[in-house]
């Protein structure tokens, strides 16, 4: 049996331990609370900035890029600064969202996707098509694409397109027809994918991008083209140099995804115009 003094000493010691533990717990709680509050504060500020649009399109794609030349509906050359990408488009078409049928980043709007998906080998067979087969199927020959503008006069040379694999179901229905080409346009390489079944790719994976829908006139009508551009290598450069730019569009029943790196925006635009107007 413990003596009175032993009990008292033990009680006082336990009180000290209790107080120390309590202080530690309070300190720990305070630290965690400060951290959590900090994270919440940052989240709230970020949410507020995003909500107000201050974060997001940090480098907006110019609505009417002044550095691009355009051949209008009637073939006239439009000089720098005079470009109106919506030239010749009726107001009701301009303002009709349904016209913007091409996909936005990570999103398809009203347009089927031909993006690769798993096809069971037991239920499908493949055929390998040559360039000639592809041209006959698509109805467009990239080798005939020529760019003729003030700044660039060049002909597209298809570099790589050895063969194209297409997929059929066992009953003979074509289910995948994405064909890829690589063109060289006066030293600038441009990738072209085409499909009649839908947009070759339904997503664009970039850390940042800006997009704009514009319309390129043809003698048959207007073709909406959705451009995606990532941040400029040098925003002050003249003309505008893009480190990565993509265009999605549909013309004459063929869906295109065209992309290029380190290219002047105006050259890329003229290449797309040439395909659309072919």
């Amino acid at each position: 049996m413990k003596s009175c003094s032993e009990i008292t000493n033990e009680l006082l010691e336990r009180r000290e331990n209790y107080n120390t533990d309590r202080k530690n717990k309070i300190n720990k709680f305070a630290k965690i609370s400060v951290s959590v509050c900090g994270v919440c504060l940052i989240a709230c500020i970020s949410f507020g900035l995003i909500h107000e649009g201050k974060i997001g399109d940090l480098l907006p794609f110019p609505e009417n890029p002044s550095t691009v030349e355009n051949t209008g509906l009637d073939g006239e050359t439009v000089n720098d600064g005079d470009l109106d990408l919506n030239i010749g488009i009726p107001d009701d078409v301009k303002n009709n969202d349904a016209v913007k049928f091409l996909c936005f980043v990570n999103k398809i709007e009203d347009t089927l996707s031909a993006a690769p998906k798993y096809l069971d080998p037991a239920l499908h067979y493949t055929e390998t098509w040559s360039d000639e087969d592809a041209v006959a199927y698509l109805g467009i020959d990239l080798n005939t694409i020529t760019v003729d503008s003030v700044h660039l006069k060049a002909k597209c040379d298809v570099l790589e397109s050895d063969s194209h694999t297409v997929y059929f179901t066992n009953d003979g229905t074509l289910v995948r027809d994405i064909m890829s080409f690589e063109c060289e346009l006066q030293g600038e390489k441009i990738s072209v994918s085409a499909s009649k079944l839908g947009l070759p790719y339904d997503c664009l994976y970039t850390t940042s991008s800006e997009k704009i829908t514009t319309y390129i006139g043809t003698e048959y009508g207007n073709v909406g083209v959705l451009f995606y551009g990532t941040s400029e290598i040098n925003i002050e450069s003249e003309p505008l140099l893009r480190d990565f730019i993509v265009a999605d569009f549909q013309v004459n029943g063929v869906n295109f995804r065209v992309s290029a790196e380190n290219i002047y925006q105006r050259d890329f635009y003229h290449f797309i115009s040439a395909i659309v107007n072919q």
């Binding site: 009175c4 003094s5 009990i7 008292t8 009680l11 006082l12």
Partner: peptide
């Protein structure tokens, strides 16, 4: 703390 000692002594 002597108060505690007295309580323990008297009532334990």
């Amino acid at each position: 703390d002597n108060g505690l000692t007295e309580i323990v002594r008297d009532y334990k």
